[in-house]
Design a protein around this nucleic acid. Structure first.
Length: 865
RNA sequence: GCGGACGUGGCGGAACCGGUAGACGCAACGGACUUAAAAUCCGUUUCCCGUCAGGGAGUGAGGGUUCGAGUCCCUCCGUCCGCACCA
């Protein structure tokens, strides 16, 4: 009869023990090496599915591994609890955002506990808790005082029917997602945080983040987008009104000035707007541009369109030459000056535009090996290197020389200056929504913007709000909105915008260090724990969240709140879990557990013969119902099985598909480990009684396998290669499976191997490991046990197998002493029959020997030929 | 459109620094055990030709560098992520 591991019984039992012993509670121990592991905290959207779990399981493996290595580990969890879904639920289900959110948090917390995560729950925080957001309001006020927070006008997507601002994702084909109304661009006065003040620093410090993925650093670098260029002024020759007498442009290619054939203004450029006042067709064109929303992707994929304003500007160097001025839909007001000059020959966008409006295309940069007279630009702009041509005083110069020459002249003439421009814009944080952190200011007609005094903090969200009317409930809340001015006492009104939820997540990692402090943070605690040693989350946050957090940490450093400028020393971006999708005949999505698959791979609705269509494999999401709840796996297979499966096979940074076959495989593994341990346990020498010895060949082999596994798994966990660690453990288990102890030495070696196996799986399948540890007679808990060390003597291999190639093609292999000299390898290689056959009559030209790796015999044509 | 990544057997993937491609898992097939099934154990499994021996091809496509390329370079194709009010 086989021995079964009853996960459903064992797992809750061990979780109760961990909880009772409070072994995951983090306490600052000055002098002890610390390790702060953090997964990006979840938005409490409802129930979690197994797809959310991967992130936390990876973090938990790191936390448990580092704890075993002797680090004082901080592994906290909290809730990114403000955001739009709570308000959408309020509108659709008549639930209050707070109740909806709190219920979700309670449900999700239970689910996370089920996963067996080694989290210090005493540090739990929720961003919608006034105890959290009061500190966030304090930080905001510090920013306001220091000039890092300010107000200005900016454009938003406006839904005229719902009377609300729309997120870019809520604008679908230019229409509001709920109302279907055509979206307008509207100007609102909004709060901004001056992230651009740190642009250079945020860029430079990327170099120091050597434990971040290269791709994330590159993305941030491009996002910040530092470029050196020239800002200069065009004089308008036929200005109809005073505000249109000059046009300022910014360019990174001043060298191409003689190839300029037009100027283009952003639709909301002040000159465009001024001209539109007396030009109805232009006003219509601008209105049309505004219907395309504010997203960069939408603007850039649009067909390039322009409107000729009739204005002409003088070319700065060509006497008498003028260029037309267009308003163009692809020019962004938010970048540079909101106006450009177009050089079609050397910029693809400008070229498309010029072809459409039949503007001249004059090449001014010519590749060095081409004659200027032969060089033409057809459908593709030339952006490569070359020499200047058709450019008067620039002719013959390199691009760099020409850029400098133009800049010098413009600066000399007082019409331009060199400028460093960033793509990065200041961060607009105003949201016209209820469920967010209130911005703690009061607007007074007499005193202006007045910060809410410290004694009145926090500005709490009122609970008595309704969502039955369009717009922001705070804006129509009479008693909350209307207050006395703290300065002059006259009637004033509260700021009704709330903060972007990205603000909430920009400093929570610091709050976790002292989650119950009545200060923003406790300086001693942040000094001990920060930076986060390992941060784990999805790549989708590679730019915004991580950049905002880096900015906030710098701001907090400026205020003396923290000592570090960089919040995350190590970053890992994990992939999503995917699953097949299913639809019934009517086209409705089905949950995987509503579907049954037959032998032929065809699917039917469970318990019926109704055909189910199997759709593509996609990211697990509630909307497509391709989700698996953790409870379902836990109750039948155990969460360790789910954890093991999530770590197996697929590299952690890649998307991984959840399949029943994979779960079955993981389940077999957990059973197998348990069986090997329990079948052998009784027959082993007592723990610690006999030191492992290697006098028998079988014992030595097992010990070598054990120690290689220890070394490899340690390196793989260290390097975030969980799938490889899993493979190495399978290898050890395969060895153990066939191992029949004979001599006493074998049994001691077997004990060593089983204990090592238990310790190695402990970070990944912690409940199973506790059970095995108990069976093996281990003291205390495996969660508190020390990580095993590999003995270098047992890892070394004395003989190596090296491949022998003839002209790069493998013809055989030789087994030879490690580090054998070249002559020996050469002799052995040439002695192989297959090798001599492959050489045949050819002359040996050279033999390449790479020690312990390969021998390659290079042969030429036949001897004497 | 711009920016970033990825592409290896039937499937997920491994391959450290340019050095035996396919570790490990899944699936499939064959066998053992069993009254039978499940579970378990043993074996085979990149493809093509071949009974074997052996030979040939092969890491999205095409080219290049090298004694040697999955790995480096160029061009192309495909898939995925981000683009500032989703989190």
């Amino acid at each position: 009869m086989s021995i079964r591991y009853n996960a459903a019984e064992a797992e809750p039992r061990w979780r109760a023990v961990w909880e009772r012993e409070q072994i995951f509670r983090a306490v600052e121990r000055p002098g002890a090496p610390k390790y702060y592991v953090l997964e990006m905290f979840p938005y409490p959207s409802g129930k979690i599915h197994i797809g959310h779990g991967r992130n936390y399981v990876m973090g938990d493996v790191v936390a448990r591994f580092k704890r075993a290595q002797g680090f004082n580990v901080l592994h906290p969890m909290g809730w990114d609890a403000f955001g739009m879904p709570a308000e959408n639920a309020a509108m659709e289900q008549k639930s209050h955002p707070r109740q909806w959110t709190e219920a979700n948090i309670a449900a999700m917390k239970e689910q996370l506990r089920l996963l067996g995560l080694s989290i210090d729950w005493s540090r739990e925080i929720a961003t919608c808790d006034p105890a959290y957001y009061v500190q966030q309001q304090r930080i905001f006020l510090k920013m306001l005082n220091s000039g890092l927070a300010y107000r200005r006008e900016s454009s938003v997507n406006w839904d005229p029917v719902d009377q609300t601002v729309l997120a870019n994702e809520q604008v679908i084909d230019g229409r509001g997602w709920r109302s279907g109304a055509l979206v307008e661009t509207r100007k609102l006065t909004q709060w901004f945080l001056r992230i651009t003040e740190f642009a250079d620093e945020l860029l430079d410090a990327l170099k120091t983040l050597d434990r971040w993925p290269e791709k994330v650093r590159v993305m941030q670098e491009n996002w910040i987008g530092r470029s050196e260029g020239l800002r200069f002024q065009f004089r308008v020759t036929n200005a109809p009104r005073p505000e249109a007498e000059t046009i300022d442009v910014f360019t990174t290619r001043p060298d191409t000035i003689f190839g300029a054939s037009f100027c283009a203004l952003a639709p909301d450029h002040p000159v465009s707007l001024a001209l539109a006042e007396t030009d109805a067709p232009l006003a219509d064109f601008i209105a049309e541009c505004r219907r395309h929303g504010t997203s960069e992707a939408a603007l850039e994929t649009l067909e390039k369109k322009g409107f000729d304003t009739g204005l002409r500007v003088a070319h700065p160097f060509e006497e008498g030459e003028t260029l037309p001025v267009y308003v163009a839909n692809f020019v962004l007001m938010g970048y540079g000056t909101g106006a450009i000059f177009g050089c079609p020959a050397h910029d693809q966008r400008d070229l498309d535009f010029a072809r459409k409006y039949k503007l001249p295309v004059r090449p001014v940069v010519v590749p060095v090996d081409v004659l200027p007279s032969d060089f033409e630009v057809a459908d593709e702009a030339y952006t490569g290197d070359g020499r200047l041509a058709n450019s008067h005083f620039l002719n013959g110069m390199s691009i760099a020389e020409a850029k400098a020459a133009v800049a010098d002249r413009m600066e000399g003439a007082g019409i331009g200056e060199r400028q460093i421009q960033f793509r990065l814009r200041d961060w607009g944080i105003s949201r016209q929504r209820y469920w967010g952190c209130p911005i703690p200011v009061i607007h007074c007609e007499a005193c202006g913007v007045v910060p809410v005094p410290e004694k009145d903090l926090p500005v709490r969200l009122p609970d008595d709000v309704t969502f039955d009317a369009p717009g922001n409930p705070l804006d129509r809340h009479p008693t909350w909105k209307n207050v006395a001015c703290p300065d002059c006492g006259k009637p004033a009104r509260r700021e009704t915008d709330t903060m972007d939820t990205f603000v909430d997540s920009s400093w929570y990692f610091a709050r976790f260090c002292s989650p119950h402090s009545d200060q923003i943070v406790d300086r001693a605690a942040v000094d001990y724990w920060l930076p986060v040693d390992q941060y784990i989350g999805g790549v989708e946050h590679a730019i915004l969240h991580l950049l905002y957090a880096r900015f906030y940490t710098r701001a907090m450093q400026r205020f003396g709140l923290v000592g570090e400028a960089e919040p995350f020393a190590g970053l890992f971006t994990q992939g999503m879990i995917t699953h097949e999708t299913y639809k019934d005949a009517a086209g409705h999505w089905l949950f995987p557990d509503e579907v049954e698959k037959g032998e032929d791979g065809k699917a039917v609705r469970k318990g019926t013969d109704e055909a189910v269509q199997i759709g593509p494999i996609e990211k697990m999401s509630k909307s497509k119902k391709n989700v698996v709840p953790p409870e379902a796996v836990a109750s039948t297979y155990g969460v360790d099985c789910a954890r093991w499966f999530m770590l197996s096979d697929t590299p952690p940074e890649r998307d991984s598909e959840w399949t029943q076959a994979g779960v079955d495989g993981a389940w077999r593994f957990t059973q197998r480990v348990f069986r090997i341990v329990s079948e052998n346990a009784a027959d082993l020498p007592p723990r610690g009684a006999v030191g492992p010895n290697a006098s028998s060949a079988t014992a030595l082999e097992l010990r070598q396998a054990t120690h290689r596994a220890i070394a490899d798994v340690t390196a793989d966990l260290e390097g975030f290669r969980f799938n490889r660690a899993v493979a190495r453990i399978y290898e050890l288990v395969n060895v153990l499976n066939g191992f029949k102890p004979a001599a006493a030495d074998d049994k001691a070696a077997l004990r060593e191997a089983l204990e090592a196996l238990t310790l190695l799986i402990a970070p990944m399948t912690p409940h199973l490991a506790e059970e095995c540890w108990r069976i093996l007679g281990g003291e205390k808990l495996v969660a508190l046990a020390q990580w095993p060390a590999a003995d270098p003597e047992l890892i070394r291999r004395d003989r190596v197998t090296i491949a022998v190639q003839v002209n790069g093609k493998r013809r055989g292999e030789i087994e030879i002493a490690r580090d054998a000299d070249e002559e020996t390898v050469r002799g052995a290689a040439l002695g192989l029959e297959a090798v001599t056959r492959a050489i045949g009559d050819n002359a040996i030209r050279k033999v390449v020997v790479v020690p312990n790796r390969i021998a390659n015999i290079v042969v030429g044509e036949a001897k004497g030929a």
